[in-house]
Design a protein around this nucleic acid. Structure first.
Lengths: 95, 95
DNA sequence: AAAATAGTTCAAATGTTTTTGAACTATTTA
DNA sequence: TAAATAGTTCAAAAACATTTGAACTATTTT
């Protein structure tokens, strides 16, 4: 609720995470589902290797764009919409 | 006014343009001024070489984030807020 | 006309991101 | 217990982005 200020470094990290076609497609997929899914499922749908998937999910997670938690063998991810709101929909308020 | 759909490639180009600290600072500078300024002035304020400035303005322009027009020797730039609105403030509508 | 100024272009160098496959950990199934 | 499955890590390779300086065009000033 309180006004958030972001450093240039934080903003750069978020926009770098968004600046890749695979990651944008992952975001689009997670958006239309709107519930948690395993990394493996997403990777299959995207047609990428598990190593590549692991790399891209790490980038998204470190930017705060997805949340993740492990259940047994599997890692489940979902969009963190608050981060999108802060950096994208409220872009001008942060600059 | 009409609903705009963007390809993954177009979105990637815009987010790549935003994914750099110098370019984010340029955007912040142009935002607070809210009138056209020459590339030279912006470059000086940012403390970058004219070659580097030329490169960054090209990236921003090709992404549609700034408009530019030449008057004699000088190139004047300003933010194109409609592009920011389409890709950032209306991010979810485009996915 | 010569010198200065604003910006672009080019190629080389440097730096960063992404992909790949092999080896690994942890969990589940047979 | 052995084999299969989900995901991570690592280092090397490949691909891409950025910086640099020199050479260039076009305009303005002296």
């Amino acid at each position: 609720m309180t006004k958030q200020m972001h450093t240039i470094e934080e903003s750069t990290k978020v926009f770098k995470a968004l600046a890749d076609p695979i990651r944008l497609k992952i975001i689009g997929y997670l958006n239309q589902l709107d519930h948690e899914v395993s990394c493996g499922e997403v990777g299959q749908v995207m047609g990428i290797s598990k190593t590549s998937g692991s790399y891209h999910f790490k980038i998204l997670q470190e930017a705060g764009l997805i949340t993740a938690h492990k259940i047994a063998r599997e890692k489940y991810v979902a969009l963190d919409r608050s981060t999108f709101d802060q950096y994208l929909t409220h872009f001008w308020q942060n600059l």
